[in-house]
Write a protein that binds this DNA or RNA. Structure first.
Lengths: 207, 207
DNA sequence: TCTATTTTACTTTTTAGTAAGTAAGTTATT
DNA sequence: AATAACTTACTTACTAAAAAGTAAAATAGA
């Protein structure tokens, strides 16, 4: 139906990822979209409404991607690598992820937005945990400690990795970090459990 | 000398860590300090001046702490653990670290602030790298890959770990994460490879 | 026509920043 | 020692711009 509504959310998210929710203004959006300020208020009476829509959109999109990745891959590293790829392309656009962006401003956000953000974080954490456990079960991932903790490790690598790499204006830094994270998950011996897919050798680009 | 100036920086940093630089306002500070808005402008003509003072203060304090830790410890894990402790106490105050806070808003910051922030990040990264290398040399730390990459791993654990743990209002989550990070650095008892993944030596309860 | 969508024109609040003034203290000159 | 000149550390009282939000009128599509 209303393409304006979708355009508003899309652009608003873009701006939030680039500059943060508190910097985002209705004027920013309306100018770039060639509409009036009040048109945004028609679709999203308050900024909170807009914020909620952004998080929900993000969650929906990520959930869809995750589901499709699970169908395409059996190797845990391949699956997790897809998520890293999403983060990598966000970084290409000189943005950070929604979790990092809103996480910083958390205390200034309305309760409903905080709750939505938690849901997004948990979606990713639980999904990562699941992939790690599946990988451990089918021999495509090796790690020490609990899957919950390791999921946190991977998430923090992404969330802060993207922030620091953007600061350094160095996408390679992020790539090195995620490659390292994946490599430490990789089963070391060639004599490990036979899996459906032959895992690639350790591809250490450059350190 | 001027205690007002120091109080302004101190409180401003507190507010930045809690709510972000763009949310911070002169009124916030002046009200809480019982002074007038213009008094802050006297010490810091522009918000950029204030922002720079905050980062510089942070960098000075961290650098001093780091130097003292290096004198107190020889074990790499003990030294790095001290830095984790600083982050842990920031989390106790329901704050995030300056890197995460300003990192998110990076594109909205004046160039000089971006440059100062980079210096802060590099100070920590280089220090971590140094401790890792010393640890590897004196046998108190074991890790795969380059020290540069591993320093990034530790930093991202801290920066995003504090953000996510605050979101979950769960300091234990941060503690578990950092404990895991330290444990994976710990040299395994000389008896080479344990064949089962259920070997002891992973302590997840207390530092 | 009826309804969804958008604009015009506005309000209120808050923002960073400024100009002018002042009281108290410091320094320099005699 | 006395006083004039100057500095420090503020306050009072403002400005201009931008923020989110609103009410009502106009427009467009079914």
């Amino acid at each position: 139906m209303s393409t304006t509504r979708d355009e508003i959310i899309r652009l608003a998210e873009e701006l939030v990822l680039a500059k943060g929710f508190n910097w985002l203004s209705y004027s920013d959006i309306s100018q770039k979209l060639g509409i009036k300020n009040a048109a945004i208020h028609y679709h999203f009476p308050t900024k909170e409404d807009l914020g909620l829509a952004i998080i929900e959109r993000d969650r929906t999109m990520i959930a869809e991607l995750m589901a499709s990745w699970e169908q395409q891959h059996t190797d845990a590293i391949d699956i997790i690598s897809e998520l890293f790829g999403v983060y990598s392309s966000i970084l290409q656009g000189c943005q950070v992820c929604l979790i990092g962006s809103l996480g910083t401003d958390m205390l200034t956000l309305p309760d409903a937005m905080q709750a939505e953000l938690k849901k997004l974080v948990n979606l990713i954490l639980i999904w990562l945990k699941k992939q790690l456990e599946k990988g451990r079960a089918n021999g495509t991932a090796v790690f020490e400690g609990s899957s919950t903790t390791h999921a946190m490790v991977l998430l923090t690598n992404m969330v802060a990795g993207i922030q620091i790499a953007r600061l350094h204006n160095n996408t390679k830094e992020f790539h090195t970090l995620t490659t390292h994270a994946l490599n430490s998950l990789r089963p070391k011996d060639a004599t490990s459990f036979p899996s459906s897919s032959t895992s690639k050798s350790i591809r250490t680009k450059k350190l």
